Amino acid sequence: MTGNLQQKPIGLLGGTFDPIHHGHLRLALELYERLNLAEVRLIPSANPPHRESPAVSAELRLEMVRVAIDGLQGVVADGRELMRSGPSYMVDTLKSIREEEGARPVYMILGMDAFMNLHGWHRWDELLNYAHILLVRRPGKLLPMTHVMRGFLDLNRAKTLDELQIRPSGKIYIEDIPPLTISATQIRGLLATDRNPRYLLPRPVLEVINTHQLYR
Rank of each mutant, 00 (worst) to 15 (best):
R150T: 06
I133C: 05
L135H: 10
P144G: 13
M116E: 11
K171G: 02
T146F: 10
L143Y: 14
F152G: 02
R150N: 11
L153E: 08
I166E: 07
L164M: 11
W121G: 05
Y130N: 01
K159T: 11
I177A: 05
L161S: 09
T160V: 14
M116D: 09
M145P: 06
K141R: 14
R167L: 14
H119A: 08
R137S: 13
E163N: 03
I172V: 04
V148N: 08
R150W: 02
R157A: 04
H132R: 08
L128E: 04
L142I: 07
N129W: 05
L143H: 10
L127I: 12
A158C: 10
T146Y: 12
L155Y: 15
Y130T: 04
A131F: 04
P144W: 11
D162I: 06
P139Y: 14
V148P: 01
P139A: 10
R137W: 14
V148T: 13
V136R: 07
E163C: 05
I172S: 00
M116S: 05
D176N: 15
M145R: 13
I174P: 01
R167M: 13
I177E: 09
I172Q: 02
K171S: 06
I133G: 01
G140N: 12
Y130E: 07
G140R: 07
L135E: 02
S169W: 00
L153N: 06
L135S: 00
P139W: 11
N117S: 09
H119N: 05
R138H: 08
T160P: 03
W121H: 06
L155A: 02
E163G: 03
N129A: 01
G120V: 03
N156D: 07
I172F: 08
R123T: 12
A131N: 06
I133A: 05
R137K: 12
R138W: 12
V136K: 05
F152H: 12
G151L: 14
L128T: 10
A131S: 15
D176T: 06
I133F: 12
F152P: 03
F152I: 02
R137C: 09
K159I: 09
L127K: 02
I133T: 04
S169E: 04
N156L: 06
R167N: 08
L164R: 02
L128F: 09
R137Q: 10
D162S: 11
L161I: 15
G151C: 05
I172H: 00
L164E: 02
R150Q: 15
Y173T: 00
T160H: 12
W124S: 00
T146N: 15
H132K: 06
D176H: 02
G170M: 11
D176P: 03
K159R: 11
R138D: 09
Y173A: 03
I166C: 01
D154L: 15
